[in-house]
C-alpha cells in the first residue's frame, strides 16, 4: 500500500499515533522505575544520617554480614529506625511544630523563606545510651549547592560527626569536603560555649594548632578557600537557629 506521506491528514494521524505510543511507554516506565529511585534518595539520606553518629556504611555492612545478611535498603531502614528515635521540626522561637517529620522537610526550598517562616528539622538519635542531636545543613559552595548533616554530643556543644555533600564543587579541591579526612577534622570541635551561647566555627587555612578542639577553629583545605567559606557559612547560619531550643533543653535538664 502506498501512502501520500506529505498529506496533512497522514501527518496528523502519524503524530497522534506517535504521541500516544510514546506517552504510554514513558508513563509506564516511570511508574515502574519510580519506587527504586525514591528508595535510592531515602537510602542516601539515611546512610548520611547514620554516618554522623558514627555508624558508617562499612561498619553496618560488617554487622549485617556477621548475621548473614546483605546491607539492603530494608536493613538500612531498620537500622535508621532503631537509632533515630525521634524526628521533630522547630520554629524560630525554638518551639516544636506539630505534624512535621524532620525527614520530610526539604531544606532547599525551606531555606529560601524568611527565617521566621521556616521550620528547622532536628533528628534525635540514641546510641549506646547517649542521645545525639543531628541538624541538617544546606548552603552555597563555590559553584553550586552544598549540604550536610551535623551531629551534636549529648552535651549540646561538641560535634560528634559531620557528613557533607555537594553538587558541583571543583574535583580534587572543593569536592574533597566529602572526604573522610576532612569530615573527621570537625569531630570534637565546639560550636557553643559553656553557657550554651552559639559561637560557631572558623575554617582557617594552614591552622597552626590543629589538635586544639576548644578554639572554634578547623583546618581548611588549601586551594579551596571559597568552598570552605561556604561550609563555614552553612554551619554557622544553620546551627545558630537551634540555640534557643538547646538552651531550653539544658534548663530542663538542670532542673
Amino acid at each position: 500500500m502506498k501512502f501520500d506521506r506529505n498529506s496533512n491528514i497522514y501527518t496528523f494521524i502519524f503524530t497522534i499515533i506517535l504521541v500516544s505510543v510514546v506517552g504510554i511507554l514513558l508513563a509506564s516506565a516511570y511508574t515502574f522505575f519510580k519506587p527504586f529511585h525514591e528508595n535510592n534518595i531515602r537510602q542516601e539520606k539515611m546512610t548520611d544520617l547514620l554516618y554522623t553518629i558514627g555508624l558508617d556504611k562499612q561498619k553496618l555492612a560488617e554487622v549485617a554480614k556477621a548475621k548473614g545478611l546483605n546491607l539492603s535498603y530494608k536493613l538500612i531502614e531498620q537500622y535508621f529506625e532503631k537509632y533515630f528515635v525521634k524526628q521533630i521540626a522547630l520554629n524560630e522561637k525554638g518551639e516544636e511544630v506539630e505534624g512535621i517529620k524532620a525527614f520530610d522537610v526539604d531544606l532547599k526550598t525551606e531555606i529560601k523563606k524568611p527565617a521566621s517562616e521556616q521550620v528547622y528539622p532536628l533528628f534525635i538519635a540514641e546510641k549506646d545510651g547517649k542521645t545525639y542531636y543531628v541538624i541538617p545543613l544546606y548552603g552555597k559552595g563555590l559553584w553550586d549547592d552544598i549540604w550536610g548533616y551535623l551531629a551534636l554530643e549529648p552535651d549540646l556543644r561538641t560535634i560528634a560527626g559531620v557528613k557533607f555533600g555537594h553538587k558541583g564543587e571543583t574535583p580534587g579541591l572543593g569536592a574533597e569536603i566529602t572526604s573522610k579526612w576532612f569530615e573527621d577534622r570537625f569531630i570534637g570541635e565546639k560550636l557553643f560555649d559553656e553557657q550554651g551561647n552559639f559561637v560557631g566555627l572558623d575554617l582557617v587555612k594552614n591552622l597552626e594548632d590543629k589538635a586544639n578542639k576548644d578554639d572554634h577553629k578547623v583546618d581548611a583545605i588549601s586551594g579551596s578557600t571559597l568552598t570552605c567559606n561556604g561550609v563555614e557559612e552553612m554551619i554557622n547560619e544553620r546551627v545558630k537557629h537551634y540555640e534557643v531550643y538547646f538552651k531550653k533543653l539544658k534548663n530542663q535538664k538542670n532542673k
Binding site: F3, R5, N6, Y10, T11, F14, T15, L18, V19, V22, L25, L26, A29
Partner: peptide, 21 residues
C-alpha cells in the same frame, strides 16, 4: 512511514524517549 515535513521532530521524539528511559 515518517512524514518528511516533521521528520526532525519525529527523530527528536524517538531520541528523547530513549534518553528518558
Amino acid at each position: 512511514y515518517i512524514p518528511m515535513r516533521i521528520r526532525i521532530i519525529v527523530q527528536l521524539v524517538v531520541i528523547a524517549s530513549l534518553v528518558i528511559l
